[in-house]
Structures are given as C-alpha cells and as structure tokens.
Amino acid sequence: MRDNNDMPGHLARRFQQIAVAVFHAEAEAAGYDLTPVQYAALAAISASPGIDQVTLAGLIAYDRTTITGVVDRLVQKGLIERRASSRDRRARELQITGEGRRTLEDIAPAVEAAQQLLVRGLSAGETEELMRLLRKAIAAGNELSRAPLREVATEGSKNG
C-alpha cells in the first residue's frame, strides 16, 4: 500500500486545504469575508463584464450548481449585480458594482500575501517549476474534471 505522501491526489488535496485556510486567514485579517471562489468569481466578472453564470462557471472551473450559490452571495454582499441580458432574455448578465471594484482593489495585497505564503518554503526557481508542473498536470487532466476550465469566447466567436 502506498503512503499518502506518495499519492498526487492526496498531496493536491492537502495543498488545496492549505491554500483555502491561508486565503481565509489573509482575507479576514484584511477585514474581508470573501472565500477563494468568491474572489475568483469577482475577479472574473470584473475582467469580463456582462458574462453569464454558465460562462463564469467555465471560466473559473466550477460546476453550475456551485456557481449559483457563489453568485447569490456576491449579489447579497452588494459586490455584483444580475441584469437581464440584452442578447438573450432568458440569460442574466453579471456586472461588478462600485463596491465590488473597491473590494477587489483593497483585498489585492491580502491575496498576494496568501499566494506568497503558499510557496514560502520554495526558492524562486522552485516556485516557477511548481507552477509550470501544476499548469501542465491541470491541462492534461482538465477534461477529467466535473467542472473543466473553459475559455471565454470572444464577441466574434460567440454563437447565437
């Protein structure tokens, strides 16, 4: 039987647990009640104003059920708004609010501190190598996920 420390799945889960704990601690210390997925969603909506929830889910690799709750909480916190789509009356577009923009700006140092804490035991070269290997492994396994990462289509390539 293999030791857990020889299993990539176990190590990935442990690293994720650490990443979430560090993010929460840094965000809380900065005075924010924001989870890593809420932050990812807020940043994605800021970068792609008007995206819908399905596109957002693909963009940050979360399943559609989970993203609904994330969006609901961001709306409740006043960080984003849902608006009727001008292109599809069934769809709802997501827009960041002024408060959401301020939150993204203000929490940025805490997010950066969290990222640095995650690799504090590594040299700069080791950090680059870890990031390269994580990207490679994730790209190779992306389609195996229940929520694969999807690229956002540009305006000219959207169907509809």
Rank of each mutant, 00 (worst) to 15 (best):
Leu74His: 08
Leu74Thr: 09
Leu74Val: 11
Leu74Ala: 11
Val75Met: 05
Gln76Leu: 15
Gln76Met: 13
Gln76Asp: 15
Gln76Val: 15
Gln76Arg: 15
Gln76Cys: 09
Gln76Ser: 15
Lys77Met: 09
Lys77His: 02
Lys77Ala: 13
Gly78Asn: 07
Gly78Trp: 06
Gly78Thr: 13
Gly78Pro: 11
Gly78Asp: 07
Leu79Glu: 02
Leu79Arg: 07
Leu79Ser: 00
Leu79Lys: 05
Leu79Trp: 08
Leu79His: 07
Ile80Thr: 08
Ile80His: 01
Ile80Gly: 02
Glu81Ala: 09
Glu81Cys: 07
Arg82Phe: 04
Arg82Pro: 08
Arg82Gln: 13
Arg83His: 12
Arg83Val: 13
Arg83Ser: 10
Arg83Cys: 10
Arg83Gly: 10
Arg83Asn: 09
Arg83Gln: 15
Ala84Gln: 13
Ser85Ile: 10
Ser85His: 10
Ser86Thr: 15
Ser86Val: 15
Ser86Met: 11
Arg87Gly: 02
Arg87Pro: 00
Asp88Glu: 12
Asp88Thr: 08
Asp88Cys: 06
Arg89Ser: 10
Arg89Gly: 01
Arg89Pro: 11
Arg90Glu: 05
Arg90Phe: 07
Ala91Cys: 04
Ala91Glu: 09
Arg92Leu: 14
Arg92Glu: 13
Arg92Ile: 07
Arg92His: 12
Arg92Tyr: 12
Glu93Thr: 13
Glu93Trp: 06
Glu93Lys: 08
Glu93Pro: 03
Glu93Ser: 11
Leu94Asp: 03
Leu94His: 04
Leu94Gly: 03
Leu94Ser: 03
Leu94Thr: 05
Gln95His: 14
Gln95Asn: 09
Gln95Val: 12
Gln95Lys: 10
Ile96Val: 15
Ile96Trp: 00
Ile96Ser: 04
Thr97Gln: 04
Thr97Glu: 05
Thr97Ala: 05
Thr97Ile: 09
Thr97Gly: 01
Gly98Thr: 13
Gly98Ala: 10
Gly98Ser: 07
Glu99Arg: 14
Glu99His: 09
Glu99Gly: 12
Glu99Cys: 06
Gly100Glu: 01
Gly100Thr: 01
Gly100Met: 02
Gly100Trp: 00
Gly100Lys: 01
Arg101Gln: 14
Arg101Asp: 07
Arg102Leu: 09
Thr103Arg: 06
Thr103Ser: 05
Thr103Met: 11
Thr103Leu: 12
Leu104His: 04
Leu104Arg: 03
Leu104Phe: 03
Leu104Tyr: 01
Glu105His: 13
Glu105Ser: 10
Asp106Ala: 15
Asp106Gln: 14
Ile107Asn: 01
Ile107Val: 15
Ile107Ala: 03
Ala108Asn: 01
Ala108Phe: 00
Ala108Cys: 00
Ala108Ser: 04
Pro109Gly: 05
Pro109Ser: 03
Pro109Asn: 05
Ala110Leu: 04
Val111Asp: 00
Val111Gln: 04
Val111Tyr: 02
Val111His: 01
Val111Gly: 02
Glu112Leu: 15
Glu112Cys: 06
Glu112Phe: 08
Glu112Trp: 09
Glu112His: 10
Ala113Arg: 14
Ala113Pro: 00
Ala113Trp: 00
Ala114Asn: 01
Ala114Gly: 04
Ala114Ser: 12
Ala114Gln: 02
Ala114Leu: 02
Gln115Gly: 12
Gln115Ser: 11
Gln116Val: 11
Gln116His: 12
Gln116Trp: 08
Leu117Lys: 15
Leu117Thr: 08
Leu117Asn: 08
Leu117Met: 14
Leu117Ile: 05
